[in-house]
């Protein structure tokens, strides 16, 4: 087990270096002089020279690269060109809001998907199954940048039940680094982000449970007189949910990137919205910081998923 853990963690190191390299390369892909691009065509040569010196763009490329890697490991991601504040500080302030939204979306997805998948699996081949899977496929095909405005239109504008933007009063109390948010503000963003994921998870739950229901241990349980409900919920579901753990972990990336659009739609003050605003302002240090943080979070979650899977399913460790 220890060997599996060490091997899996070591495999992450080159991936993280690769991710950091791509993020470093980003600023050098900017056509022309990145400093001119950031400051605009009207900038004076002195301003451009000052910014180039500040960002270290005059140094040889290998030196810039090593300095970037060193600074990134110290979480020193430079200073925002827009606000003048350290990138790391701004990211830390926004991380809580994005984590809260991602968790809420994951919860929505699981609450919707698992029962839907179970019902479809138990009634496999019937109209209930077809209906549930058609709903899931529609959910899968519905982009969140359409679902969000539609939900806002119905529940915010027409019915007036829920707020359609922001995160409530600015005097909201702080709970650790995660600001306390009136739940009403979270509902529409979480539904927008969670329902698409629910569609994927429902299909997976159904497929996985159908496989388990065919296994001999389920038939044996049924033959012993165990009710269908108990055979599904106590016996088959426990094994059937193992692949779902992986999918939930792997889909975390989709949730993270989904926050970019969802936060933009609902003006949710998280990392995604910060990224888009920084791109619009050509605040490249902040863009690099946002992308690096989201990618590193994604790699870490994938690592944790693999480790969890290795603990839950012993076969994985020995592959």
């Amino acid at each position: 087990m220890l060997r599996f853990l060490i091997r899996r963690i070591l495999l992450t190191v080159p991936v993280l270096i690769g991710v950091a390299t791509l993020v470093f390369a980003l600023i050098h892909l900017v056509p022309g002089d990145p400093a001119v691009s950031m400051l605009g065509e009207a900038a004076t040569p002195a301003d451009v020279a000052a910014l180039r010196a500040r960002l270290g763009l005059d140094d040889p490329l290998p030196r810039q690269y090593l300095r970037f890697l060193g600074a990134a490991t110290r979480l020193d991601l430079g200073v925002s060109l827009r606000t003048g504040r350290p990138v790391g500080t701004e990211l830390a302030e926004k991380l809580g809001a994005t984590a809260l939204l991602a968790m809420a979306a994951m919860s929505v997805a699981l609450i919707v998907a698992v029962p839907l998948g179970i019902i479809a699996a138990i009634r496999a081949g019937t109209w209930v199954d077809h209906l549930a899977m058609a709903v899931a496929l529609i959910g899968l095909s519905m982009p969140n940048f359409w679902l969000g405005p539609l939900l806002a239109l119905v529940f915010g504008v027409q019915l007036g039940w829920l707020p359609i933007s922001g995160r409530g009063s600015s005097t909201a109390m702080l709970f650790g680094s995660v600001p306390a948010v009136p739940p009403a503000y979270l509902v529409l963003p979480a539904l927008t982000l969670g329902l698409g994921l629910a569609a994927i998870l429902a299909r997976m739950t159904r497929a996985s449970l159908i496989d388990e229901l065919r296994e001999l241990y389920v038939r044996a349980a049924r033959a012993r007189g165990v009710s269908m409900r108990r055979a599904v919920l106590v016996h088959a579901l426990r094994n059937g949910l193992i692949p779902i753990i992986t999918i939930v972990g792997l889909q975390f990336g989709a949730v993270l990137t989904g926050t970019i659009i969802t936060e933009t739609i609902f003006a949710w003050p998280g990392l995604g919205r910060l990224l888009i605003q920084s791109i619009q302002f050509r605040d490249y240090p902040m863009v690099q910081g946002c992308i690096l943080l989201i990618a590193v979070t994604y790699v870490t979650v994938n690592l944790l998923t693999d480790l969890t899977y290795g603990i839950v399913d012993p076969r994985v460790r020995y592959e």
Binding site: P14, V15, G18, L22, T257, I291, I294, A295
Partner: peptide, 14 residues
Amino acid sequence: DVLMAFPGILLAIA
């Protein structure tokens, strides 16, 4: 592995 470590759309945005 490195390209898969990026959520696809994030890399496209970058």
